[in-house]
């Protein structure tokens, strides 16, 4: 099965830049984008716009922004951890914020990693490459 990355990102600039950075590491084809929290959950559970999608085909990792319309990243993470199907799914918070409050909340809700998006695009490309490499190739998932 093809490994996928679910990118949850509402800002079109950040989406484009993340895709570009991932493409620099040949990872762009594996990315599915959800543009808010509700869409992310719809994708994962095969509801709404994604009705008919098999929810058992889980992505390899979810890259989750915090500041999202409708349901924010923290709320999405909470839902992911509360459902049996997704409770062990790797979730990486990929966000602008470096607020301690956000980091604490994320980890206490069971985030696997918390990564700050750098402003310097060269750094961003590096971060994207390392994330992709680690979660797609190195990390061994629970199930």
């Amino acid at each position: 099965m093809e490994k996928t990355i679910l990118l949850v990102e509402d800002n079109p600039d950040d989406e484009e830049l993340t895709l570009h950075a991932m493409a620099m590491h040949n990872l762009a084809n594996q990315i599915v984008v959800a543009r808010d929290g509700v869409e992310a959950l719809d994708y994962l559970f095969g509801t709404g716009r994604f009705t008919g999608r098999n929810p058992n085909d889980l992505p390899t990792v979810v890259l989750l922004d915090i500041n999202l319309p409708k349901l924010n990243g923290i709320e999405v993470l909470k839902r992911i951890r509360s459902e049996q199907l997704t409770q062990l799914l790797p979730v990486v918070l990929l966000t602008s914020s470096n607020e301690e409050e956000d980091r604490l909340k994320s980890y206490s809700l069971g985030a696997n990693s918390y990564v700050r998006k750098p402003v310097d695009f060269e750094e961003f490309i590096k971060v994207a490459g390392q994330l992709g490499l680690y979660w797609i190739l190195i990390n061994q998932p629970a199930v």
Binding site: D13, D14, L17, N67, S97, K117, F121
Partner: peptide, 18 residues
């Protein structure tokens, strides 16, 4: 500020670099 002010800067830097 922490959340919203950085994203536009990332776009400025990123697209200039691209």
């Amino acid at each position: 500020v922490s959340h919203d002010l950085r994203a536009p800067l990332r776009a400025l830097d990123g697209f200039s670099r691209i």
